[in-house]
């Protein structure tokens, strides 16, 4: 079937299999391999992207369901000149990543979280990230990074 999807501001139209998942569409059709696949049960959150500004797990959406929608992936977070988004920068400054596999999904989940909770407590951050698994960091520095990003004054709501 034919789908037209705007990804990181660029709109393209492609023919895809009806069963193609959004994550495969992003990776294989759009060539945006920053979004990772970590499980098959909507559990790990590695594939999290923004759909109209809200975090979703792109392994649990058909590409067909994203037809006509606006998607933001990790590749759309940094400025065109390569300047990291304040959330990315906070992950860097607070060592909120190690192997980096969960990181794109984690960053996108945080972007959505901070939109809904611009001034979160530590508990709100931890609960807000309940759908994203990380095996390296023990989450300690991720939480620090999110709190720092929230309070950096650099996030545009």
């Amino acid at each position: 079937m034919r789908v037209t999807v705007t990804v990181n501001g660029t709109t393209e139209t492609h023919d895809v299999e009806t069963r193609m998942l959004l994550v495969h569409y992003l990776r294989e059709i759009r060539g945006l391999t920053g979004t990772n696949i970590g499980c098959d049960t909507t559990s790990c959150g590695a594939c999290t992207v923004l759909l109209d500004g809200e975090s979703v797990k792109s392994c649990t959406l058909l590409a067909a369901q994203a037809d006509g929608e606006e998607i933001t992936t990790i590749e759309g977070m940094a400025a065109p000149d390569g300047t990291l988004h304040p959330i990315q920068e906070a992950f860097h400054r607070h060592h909120g990543l190690q192997c980096g596999f969960c990181t794109p999904g984690m960053v996108m989940a945080v972007a959505s979280l901070l939109k809904e909770h611009p001034d979160p407590t530590e508990v709100e951050v931890r609960e807000g990230l309940e759908g994203n698994l990380c095996r390296c960091t023990g989450y300690h520095n991720i939480v620090q990074a999110v709190l720092a990003a929230a309070h950096s004054g650099e996030l545009v709501p």
């Binding site: 809200e54 975090s55 797990k57 989940a109 759908g131």
Partner: peptide, 9 residues
């Protein structure tokens, strides 16, 4: 229900 991503969809 579930987690934020699930609740968004």
């Amino acid at each position: 229900v579930g987690d934020p991503q699930v609740r968004h969809r």
